[in-house]
Simulated scan of single mutants.
Amino acid sequence: MSKAYDLEERLISFAADVVLVFDKPAKTYASKYYAEQLIRSSGSVSLNFSEFAGAGTEKDKINKLRIALKEIKECNNNLRIQLKAGLGDVKYLKKLQDEAEQIVRILVAIINKR
């Protein structure tokens, strides 16, 4: 199994974990708003990374990686907002935030090596 495949599976798992945590009726407008946005951005990370693997040119590959990086940073900021606003279970939010931060570091390392 290649490293790219391992990261792809990790990104899929992150997006799926977000769905599992947030796919329930929201209690407030804010919790619904941030949950929906987090589901979209976490899925986008995974989808753009999979496009990176199939991109034809190096420029296109870097572009897909940068989009994935932008989206995972959005996930991280979203989770920080939810934590500060008390919009969810702290344990699950912190677990997702930790994973998002690790993914940011991984994507930055991949981009810097290219």
Rank of each mutant, 00 (worst) to 15 (best):
K84I: 02
L96E: 01
A68E: 06
G86Y: 03
I39D: 02
F49T: 02
D23E: 13
S41V: 10
N48T: 05
I62G: 09
V19H: 06
A35P: 02
L87P: 06
Y34P: 01
V45L: 05
S41C: 11
F52K: 07
V90F: 05
G43M: 01
S41A: 15
Q82I: 08
Q82H: 06
A68R: 09
L79W: 11
R80M: 13
L47T: 04
S42V: 11
V19Y: 00
L38T: 10
D23M: 03
C75F: 12
I67E: 04
E36S: 08
S46Y: 10
G88E: 10
K95M: 05
E36D: 14
K70A: 04
V21N: 03
T57S: 15
A85N: 10
G54V: 10
R80H: 03
N76T: 14
E51F: 06
L96M: 12
I39L: 04
F49K: 05
G88Y: 12
V19S: 07
K59W: 03
G43V: 11
I62S: 11
I39W: 08
K95G: 02
L93Y: 04
Y29M: 00
E36I: 01
I67G: 05
S46K: 09
I39C: 02
K84T: 04
K59V: 12
A85E: 15
N76G: 12
A30L: 15
A68L: 10
I72A: 08
L93K: 00
F49Q: 03
R80K: 14
N77H: 13
K94S: 13
S46P: 03
L96F: 01
I81C: 10
N78F: 08
A26M: 07
F52Q: 05
K91I: 15
Q82K: 13
L38F: 09
A35D: 06
L93M: 11
S44P: 07
A35N: 04
F52M: 13
E51I: 04
K32F: 14
E36K: 00
S50D: 13
L87M: 11
V90Q: 13
A16P: 00
A30G: 11
V90Y: 08
E74I: 03
A30N: 15
I67Q: 07
Y29R: 04
K95Y: 06
K70P: 05
F52Y: 15
K84Y: 03
G88S: 10
K64S: 04
V18R: 08
Y29A: 00
G86P: 02
E71P: 01
D60C: 07
A30Q: 15
K24R: 14
Y33K: 12
E51G: 00
Y29F: 14
F49V: 04
L47H: 10
I81K: 07
N48H: 01
N78Q: 08
I62R: 14
K24Q: 14
R80N: 12
I67M: 03
A26P: 06
G43T: 00
L69Q: 09
E74K: 08
K27W: 01
N76V: 13
K91A: 15
K24T: 11
R40N: 12
I39Y: 05
F22M: 07
A55M: 00
N63K: 11
F49A: 00
G86S: 05
L38Q: 09
G54K: 15
